[in-house]
């Protein structure tokens, strides 16, 4: 066994790149790249949270973007009502996500397989319509967040670099947490349930309870991403909860490598950079992206991480 595998080297390079990015942006004067990567980091966080239930838990949620909206609306609505403190906004965002995850998870986990995919999709779509109906908070048009979350001098979210590092810190913290969860007894039970639910139940684990807790944790992580996203765009609208956004998150996870720790981050970086690149190339970028997805599914087993792993062996 080699000490340094290809996938580890690529991961390390990417992480170093993410850490050093503001430096590059400062030196080159390219502010756009920092804005772009702030968004990428936030969505990577969302993808990592989805990976926890999808990759490790085997729960194929097609409604994860709902949490982006819930976290975002928690920030936006509180800001509109005059509560600007991040110390209130962020906990509320997490609590709201947890509550949504608890209710939706309890209902959805009664089903499995393709039913689960469709149910989570339908509930997220319901959340989308509810947000569209919130006339007081902009309805369809969305809600402008005039003032970013205020952390009373601790960190200034309006400073690009500080905000970027906050997002990156959150991403690393979440990945660390996922790593700890996956290797804990709890995480092993959840992974066991993915492989064989009946057998785990026969040993005496209450399957649904473990899965539900995992579902809620993942939702809270994604809610955090939502709260950051609303701060990043200074705006929140039902569009972030639209089902194609959930699809995007799924694609990021699969593209990077489901069930690997850093796969979703790589997936998010590659997917969003590709989107950026193609949309500069042609207005009709989805015309290329769509068939590309089809090809990735047909031929790219295990995503980028899987590819790197094969490179190492081959």
């Amino acid at each position: 066994m080699k000490a340094l595998t290809v996938s580890k080297a690529v991961t390390a390079l990417m992480l170093a790149g993410l850490v050093l990015l503001p430096l590059y942006s400062q030196l080159s004067g390219n502010i756009f790249i920092l804005t772009l990567f702030t968004r990428i980091v936030i969505l990577a966080l969302a993808a990592a949270s989805l990976n926890l239930i999808m990759g490790f838990g085997g729960m194929m949620s097609f409604g994860h973007a709902a949490y982006l909206g819930i976290g975002g609306y928690a920030v936006g609505m509180l800001a509109q009502e005059g509560v600007g403190s991040g110390f209130i906004q962020f906990p509320v965002a997490l609590a709201a996500s947890a509550l949504y995850g608890l209710v939706i998870g309890a209902l959805s986990l009664r089903t499995r397989g393709v039913y689960f995919i469709m149910i989570t999709l339908a509930f997220a779509q319901m959340a989308y319509y509810v947000a569209s109906g919130l006339a007081r908070y902009g309805g369809d048009d969305g809600l402008t967040v005039y003032k970013r979350s205020d952390f009373s001098g601790l960190i200034n979210l309006s400073n690009r670099t500080q905000f970027y590092y906050l997002c990156l810190g959150c991403l690393f913290a979440v990945i660390f947490l996922i790593w700890r969860i996956v290797n804990s007894r709890f995480g092993l039970v959840v992974q066991g349930l993915r492989s064989n639910e009946q057998r785990m139940q026969a040993i005496g684990f209450p399957a649904k309870r473990y899965q539900l807790v995992c579902f809620v944790i993942s939702g809270m992580m994604c809610g955090l991403a939502g709260a950051l996203l609303a701060n990043n765009t200074d705006f929140i609208s039902p569009a972030v909860m639209y089902w194609t956004r959930s699809g995007d998150l799924m694609v990021m996870v699969i593209l990077g490598g489901m069930g690997t720790l850093f796969g979703p981050v790589i997936g998010a970086v590659v997917y969003l950079l590709l989107e950026e690149f193609l949309s500069q190339l042609t207005e009709y970028w989805a015309l290329i992206m769509g068939p590309l997805l089809l090809l990735i599914v047909l031929f790219g087993r295990g995503g980028i991480m899987g590819l790197l792993g094969r490179l190492n062996r081959g």
Binding site: F62, G247, V251, I254, Y284, A286, M289, G290, L293
Partner: peptide
């Protein structure tokens, strides 16, 4: 999951 992703790609393609 493969079906979902592949046909999601097809939706992007058709819309565009």
């Amino acid at each position: 999951l493969d079906h979902v992703l592949a046909t999601f790609g097809l939706i992007l393609f058709f819309n565009e």
